[in-house]
Nucleic acid binder design. Structure first.
Lengths: 358, 358
DNA sequence: TTGTAGGCGTTATCAC
DNA sequence: GTGATAACGCCTACAA
């Protein structure tokens, strides 16, 4: 390239980095040659020389998880605004992958990482974080890690969701969380217990489950609650996706939501309002997580931030249509079950009971 | 690092690349030193030396778009299986960003790119593709680009969706697509027209709109159709997200889906079955797009593939509950509108008409 | 089995 | 204003 322009590499480098104003004639020669060869500065060599990559990473367990992809989208926008590239890394919830991704800092692939994990107790992850530095924890904790953190107000969210169900008249309210070791799960439950307590309702361990944060976990939870002698009339699911699973399973079992069973979710994922029924939920802004997360990380890189920082994303209750007063007879089985449970129903069959459709 | 192990860099390099079997004693020294220093090979330097990055890129317009994030998730898995990293790049549907991302090949940041675009006519994008090479086009075309392509059977999908509505007795069926220049949009419409034709139904241009592929475009489309003197009794939306927008708008207008209006989507996005009502749609497997896309790209990199290759992802009709026979009186306004249209309804208000909830 | 040296493309330093 | 040169950290002949 430099040869083609009959110039030294130095001149070319300077030109592309606007280090100095070159005479028009020189610029023209460079531009012509670059255009001719389709020349692009080699980012890899640049990184090696500079020791910085101008790019940040986002580690998450599954990019197809709606709340996470919303965060990724927001984070990417903010990165672009600040002149960074954002690389998105899927960990598939495997600790080894998470560590491998974190090491991309040490291998100079990215300058810093926004890290979301479901392994709060992993000592190996904590060590990697402390060694690699330049990491911001999003959404979940890693116990002994020294890094800035950005959390949702989980406890408040738990209180809001539960109070909403209490206000509708429910007394038997279940809580379905992710793994108990996750702060999102335990803090939301703490809020749930507090709200219950304030109404003088005894805590019933049979109504609290921690199956996970996937739709299928919601389905499993429904099955478990369905086996109870005295099932709940309402459920607080600690993730919207779990609420979707609950709704799906409830429909299959012939229950109507919210008539037979009220549900509140958490996250406010995109299109939660067009669920059947539109899902009442606790919104935590994915936008804020993404944007503020990037800002914290850049601040950390700039040395403007200490590693003790903890910030919170506020939450709010979004009331839609998945909550109604409890039926007089509390037991699900006394509710109007219009369609029998059909494991693996034929594709042509509607999955909602006919009665709901007019 | 090499110094710490009292060995040459050569030995270390060989060890980490399994180039040769070293004596146990040497290995032990290296491992000990590496462990001690938290040593990680610098990927950047490795790339510079090797001239390859072992990583692929995926360019898409919005990672929060459910169908795309499902593709991204599948592509990432396949990449991992094949020993590649996947970097996901958001273009926000801006041609300039797409070009910048494509250039990451020329700047040696990635070895190749899976490219999804909404700018089929951009000569600049086509030029960039032809110069950069090692690109596979996914889902949409770029006219003059020389690159392997992976498309859905869009035409077939259009036929399936439309036939399904015809079979339910509909005669006035609308088509809502993305930009007309997109093959996904035009081919699905071609299928729609063909199916209509086969039933001897005249094509009515008033029933065909191309507002875009976002939920908000569906809402706009509903408003436009609602203004018609003789509105359709059914709608085929060329994307599930658009169908969601239609459902949302229809609800606000007091119409029930499918009683007053039948809808079929396209994509089969995650959780489409838990929409209110569960969405009938044409499934195109995001999994296949992601996995097969990566395989094609790797094949291209290996020189096992010519740039003329075009492959197709099959589609299938998924029947759920968003389609019903048309009402006897075809006009929406004669249908039972139970709730008036409320622009910006108060948050507490249910967005479904009361009549639907019992 | 182990080490030495040159090169990958860029940037920064220091001459000219 | 411009250019030569030494890093950056790794890999791979080639040599010992």
């Amino acid at each position: 390239m430099a040869a083609a322009a009959q110039l030294s590499v130095t001149a070319v480098s300077r030109h592309f980095n606007n280090r100095i104003v070159l005479p028009a004639e020189t610029v023209a020669r460079i531009e012509a040659a670059a255009n001719d060869l389709g020349y692009r500065a080699n980012v890899t060599a640049r990184r090696l020389s500079l020791g910085s990559s101008e790019s940040l990473g986002l580690v998450l367990s599954d990019i197809a998880y709606p709340f996470f992809s919303a965060i990724a989208s927001a984070a990417e926008s903010e990165c672009a605004r600040l002149g960074y590239s954002l690389l998105i890394f899927n960990s598939r919830n495997i600790a080894g992958n998470e560590i491998a991704h974190l090491r991309r800092i040490e291998s100079a692939q990215v300058d810093g990482i926004l890290f979301m994990t479901n392994h709060p107790g992993s000592a190996e992850i904590a060590e990697t974080i402390n060694r690699a530095r330049n990491i911001v924890l999003l959404d979940e904790d890693v116990r002994t890690a020294e890094a800035p953190r950005l959390y949702a107000r989980n406890h408040k969210g738990g209180v809001l969701a539960t109070r909403h169900l209490l206000a509708a008249g429910h007394r038997r309210i279940a809580y379905i969380g992710g793994d108990q070791s996750l702060i999102s799960s335990s803090e939301r439950m703490a809020g749930y217990r507090e709200a219950l307590n304030a109404e003088g309702i005894d805590f019933d361990p049979a109504l609290v489950l921690f199956p996970g944060y996937q739709a299928i976990d919601g389905e499993a939870a429904f099955a478990a609650l369905d086996r109870l002698k005295n099932p709940p009339t309402a459920i607080f699911a600690a993730a919207d996706v779990v609420a979707l699973g609950l709704i799906r399973a409830a429909r299959r079992a012939g229950l109507s939501v919210p008539q037979d069973l009220s549900i509140v979710g958490f996250d406010d994922i995109p299109n939660a309002d067009v669920i059947g029924p539109p899902l009442s939920t606790v919104r935590q802004s994915a936008e804020t997580f993404g944007v503020r997360g990037v800002q914290l990380l850049v601040g950390l890189l700039m040395g403007e931030l200490t590693e003790e920082v903890v910030e919170y994303v506020d939450v709010e209750l979004i009331e839609r249509s998945s909550v109604a007063p409890p039926r007089l007879r509390h037991h699900w089985r006394t509710a109007s079950r219009k369609a029998p449970s059909e494991p693996k129903a034929a594709p042509k069959t509607n999955q909602i009971p006919k009665g709901k459709r007019q």
